[in-house]
Amino acid sequence: MPPKNTQPKYRQIADYLREGILDGTFPAGQPLPSEEALAKQFGVTRPTVRQGLTELRASGLVEAIMGRGTFARSPHNRPSFTYPRGVRRSPDGQYTKADGIRWNDAEEPTATRTDAPLALADLLRIPPGEPLFTYDALQTADQGRLRQLHRTYVPFSVLLGTKYEETPPPPAPQLYNALAELGHELHFTEYVRTRMPLPDQAQALRLADGVPLLHVLRVTLTAADKPLALEEFHLPGHNLELAFRL
């Protein structure tokens, strides 16, 4: 008698579909069995089926298309979106983002005062607790198909003795040109990792359960490598790739 499968039912469903996608039983681009059919096959409820599908969506093996169903994806498929990273400087000295994407703010970002937490203070090379100007924005593009959370931090100490000592500077990317006007020659370093979203981040980015985030930190530095500002980006991690020109 074969050993009894003791894995949770949602994991059994995920394993069954994963094996079928990888061996060609469910060809890439073709619809998978419906939630109703899988629920009947495994003797479970539809929420259990969805939990199994969520596991595959997080690994990029399935894609849900509104009104059409869930489709198999090849593990070799490229993500739906490629997001070029970096900052360019035009011949007239203006700094612009390299992605060429027109991001729209859901609401106009306003500056708030926060104190630098230890991890960000380390990247900015300032004492923990130093005050920062902070901007938060939920941004969308491509008629809402692309979404990102974007936060900008500027230490008060960077702005001492400048016109922005009393009036907050603009958020990034306009911030780059404001810093250049203060006489800084800029360059940038990015740090990229993945993690699971917090509940409010998942809601803002419309992420299904089990889908990870791409967490990007961009530090703006002077020619002498002194940090001037830091940006934090949270992006969906299941259908997006980042491209860097080296």
Rank of each mutant, 00 (worst) to 15 (best):
Y176A: 13
L182A: 04
R125Q: 15
P109E: 08
A141K: 10
D142V: 10
P169D: 12
D92S: 10
R147I: 01
A180W: 05
T194V: 01
A137H: 03
P197V: 00
T114F: 04
A137I: 03
T194E: 07
H150K: 12
T112N: 13
F133L: 11
R147K: 13
K97S: 10
L175R: 09
H187W: 15
L124M: 14
R193G: 14
L175S: 09
T162P: 02
T112M: 13
R89S: 04
P199R: 05
T140L: 07
R145D: 06
H187Y: 13
L159D: 01
T167Q: 13
T140M: 08
L182C: 11
R113E: 13
A172R: 06
R193F: 12
A137Q: 08
P169A: 14
A172T: 09
T194D: 03
L175W: 10
D105R: 01
L160G: 00
W103Y: 06
L175M: 11
R195H: 01
G100C: 11
L186I: 05
V158I: 13
T112I: 15
E185Q: 15
R113D: 10
L123P: 04
A178E: 12
L124D: 10
G93L: 00
T110R: 00
N177W: 08
V154A: 05
D92F: 01
R125Y: 03
P197H: 00
P197Y: 00
A180R: 14
L123K: 15
L138I: 14
D122Q: 14
S90F: 03
R102K: 14
V158T: 15
L186A: 07
A172N: 06
H150E: 09
P168R: 03
A121N: 04
P127Y: 03
Y153R: 13
R147G: 04
T110S: 00
I126L: 14
R145Y: 05
R102C: 06
L138R: 14
V192W: 12
A111M: 10
D122V: 07
D99G: 05
E107R: 00
D136V: 05
E181K: 15
A180L: 02
D136R: 14
R195Q: 04
A141W: 12
P91R: 12
E185S: 14
V158L: 08
P199N: 04
D200G: 05
R113Y: 03
F156V: 02
R102T: 15
G93N: 01
Q139N: 03
P131W: 00
T194F: 01
D115L: 02
D99A: 11
A178R: 08
R195N: 02
T140V: 12
L186Y: 10
G129F: 01
D115T: 02
E190K: 04
E130K: 04
A111R: 11
D99T: 09
G93H: 00
E166M: 06
E166Y: 08
A137K: 02
G144D: 06
T189Y: 09
I101K: 07
E190P: 01
A141E: 11
T114L: 13
T167G: 03
Q148L: 15
A141I: 11
L124C: 13
Q174R: 15
Q94I: 12
